[in-house]
């Protein structure tokens, strides 16, 4: 039986990823932080994705989380462990910084695994079959299609502006930037009318556009069982640690 993540049912993958992400958010005890980090790395390893990809994804949002961590380390109330000039690092601050950084990396790893092992259109279909209204899933699909097209338009317009001597000097050039954004909005508005007419001619609106029945197999059920077992286990241990029962 193949339990490779790439072949699992997208609907169950979304449920599994969200269950794990919320379970990781629930964790507060420092003893469990290495456990959730290890679980997320094992799941990423099972996806057979390259490590370099994960590292790239970790780097993008890292500055905000590191800043939050530093703020907590220096400005939390508690026992001082080190003094640097006017600032002092607190024991409790280190604990909280470690907690948010580990939780952030673990949840991000789970989400990267989900979105890198599932085709985007399958995720949208799965969201629809999980009850997300068709209007929303339709907008998601069309937006995904148009982001790249409008992005190209913006790029072309910015190149043309530079070739005509435009230099972005902030508020001094605000009128040019307003025209740039205004033109993008007007073009997209005009395009939307043509798109709608073309869609109607092709039968849009006569049936649910993305709804699809996603069948389950044994590996899906095993996958869900493992995720639910891990989550129940982690939540039970966390509650036990919070009450001092372990």
């Amino acid at each position: 039986m193949d339990i490779g993540l790439n072949n699992l049912n997208p609907k169950l993958k979304i449920i599994g990823a969200m269950v794990l992400a919320f379970t990781f958010s629930f964790i507060k005890s420092i003893e469990l932080l290495p456990v959730i980090f290890f679980i997320s790395l094992v799941i990423y390893y099972l996806s057979k994705l390259p490590l370099s990809l994960l590292l790239k994804r970790w780097i993008i949002p890292a500055p905000f989380v590191i800043l939050m961590g530093l703020f907590m380390m220096f400005f939390s109330e508690g026992q001082t462990v080190l003094t640097i000039g006017y600032l002092s690092i607190k024991k409790e601050g280190i604990y909280w910084a470690l907690t948010i950084i580990t939780k952030f990396l673990s949840i991000l790893t789970i989400m990267v695994t989900l979105f890198q092992t599932t085709h985007f259109i399958d995720i949208v279909r799965a969201l629809n079959s999980l009850g997300v209204p068709a209007i929303l899933t339709d907008i998601i699909i069309f937006t995904y299609r148009y982001i790249f097209e409008i992005g190209k338009q913006l790029n072309k317009m910015q190149i043309s502006m530079r070739l005509r001597g435009f230099r972005n000097r902030g508020l001094k050039n605000i009128i040019s930037l307003v025209s740039l954004v205004g033109t993008i909005l007007v073009r997209s508005y005009e395009q939307s009318e043509k798109v709608y007419n073309a869609m109607i001619l092709r039968g849009y609106g006569h049936k649910e556009s993305v709804k699809q029945d996603l069948k389950l197999c044994k590996s899906d059920i095993l996958g869900v069982f493992i995720v639910v077992a891990i989550s129940i286990g982690l939540i039970t241990v966390q509650i036990g640690l919070s009450w001092g029962g372990f």
């Binding site: 209007i135 339709d138 913006l154 954004v181 939307s192 849009y204």
Partner: peptide, 29 residues
């Protein structure tokens, strides 16, 4: 209700793309 979907999608995409435009306000943008 579906008539406005392409408009809303293109609008969403246009706003998403417009947020890539940065305005320099020294020392940052």
């Amino acid at each position: 209700p579906r008539k406005e979907i392409p408009k809303a999608s293109l609008g969403t995409a246009a706003f998403f793309v417009a947020s890539w435009i940065s305005i320099p306000i020294p020392p940052a943008s």
